Simulated scan of single mutants.
Amino acid sequence: MAQTQQQQESLPSTVSATAAAVTVVFVAGEQEVLTGSAAIIRAAINDPAQVPGLYARLWELSQGVSRRILSRVRTLSTGAVQVASRNGDVTAVREIQALQRSTERFIASPVSRIPSHHVQSSAAIANDLTASLAGAAQRITRFANDAYRAATVNGALVGINPARDIIRDATARATLVDAQAQAWRELTSRGITGFTDSAGRQWNLSSYVEMAVRTATQRAYNASHKARMEAAGITLFTPSTTGRPCKLCAPWEGKVLSDQGEADVVQDGHRFRISATVEQAMAAGLFHPNCEHTLTAFFPGVTVLRTTEWTDRDEQAFKDTQRQRTLERAIRGAKQAQAAALTDLDRARAARRVRELQARMRNHLAATGLNRRSRREQLDLGNK
């Protein structure tokens, strides 16, 4: 007799942990560049004789960090993708075994027991991730230009305009040093920027790397998982139910996907509908950047489909979550500005900003019932 089989959940914690381990390498490099550049600029402010060599020292710092990270990119990318591929493969084997136990109608093909179904796909994904991370590492070198402009050209231009001192709550004419500190504060609160994905979205360094690694590991996991399942003779799939869908993913939860495309099917006395191919679902938004969905086998009469209807309440919950993420980024930005402040006054100003944002976070969580993710507010994303 067939037993019902629930859909698997989101990406395993080991895959997320692997993505975090790669991200922290770039986050640490970013902090080294930000705080190191601040020290160089502070020295030049205190000793004008160092100004002529300012750009060279900033360039040397950012170039050294970039070069050190670049030397690790290939190893980091390959390791992360291989872990994700192995996880997908192992999960598929367990799912196949569970399906065999659930119904006598399914007998896995012997081909599914042959190892290394994931090798080719994972190599291609690792190459793509290597290229993305190498570009991110190289972008670090451009921070020398941004830092120099913030400390000199931009600062001089801003210096002729009034500036508001939020510590004394008074309006006063800015000195050049004040203007430089303001330009620097704005730069460091954003972190290293200049990253654009294929959809035109803008990212800073840590967010871009985290997105790129999570997306690549998700691809590797799903490709390995799907290859093993297909080798077993499984051709019907459905997305996992993560419990945290967005409006792009929600329409696909509880839907059946197959390479044959949209169709009404009767199989072993069970009627169901194939909604699309996996590729069509992806084109419509499934497996978007940072998505946690995976594919799982659908076997008629055994698999229980769990559909998700996107409601106004879901929309509000999604907006609340996005607001939390915005506040997390803002808190990290204020902490970055505090760590890389050029003056004691600017350090105090940034510390005040951190406290204000943390208060906003507490109020937001109290109003929405969301759980605080303190690690996401840390400069290292809590990945040390």
Rank of each mutant, 00 (worst) to 15 (best):
A340S: 15
T326N: 07
R332N: 11
Q324I: 02
Q324L: 09
Q324K: 05
R306N: 06
L305I: 05
R323C: 07
R347A: 11
T303Y: 04
Q316S: 12
D344N: 05
T303G: 05
D312Y: 02
I331S: 10
A340V: 02
L342A: 15
A340R: 04
L345I: 07
R323E: 14
L345N: 13
R325W: 12
D346N: 07
Q322R: 13
A334M: 02
A341H: 02
Q324W: 00
D346Q: 03
A339C: 00
A348E: 12
D320I: 01
A337T: 01
Q316D: 10
D314S: 09
R323H: 15
T303C: 01
F318P: 00
Q336N: 12
A337W: 03
G301W: 10
V304C: 08
R325P: 06
D312M: 05
Q338H: 14
K335R: 14
R347C: 02
D344L: 02
R313Q: 10
V304T: 12
V302W: 04
V302A: 02
R323N: 14
T307A: 11
D346G: 08
V304P: 04
R332A: 13
A341Q: 01
D312T: 07
D314P: 03
R329I: 14
E328P: 08
R332P: 05
V304Q: 13
A337H: 02
K335P: 02
L342C: 11
Q338P: 07
T343W: 07
D320C: 05
D320R: 03
L327P: 00
D346C: 00
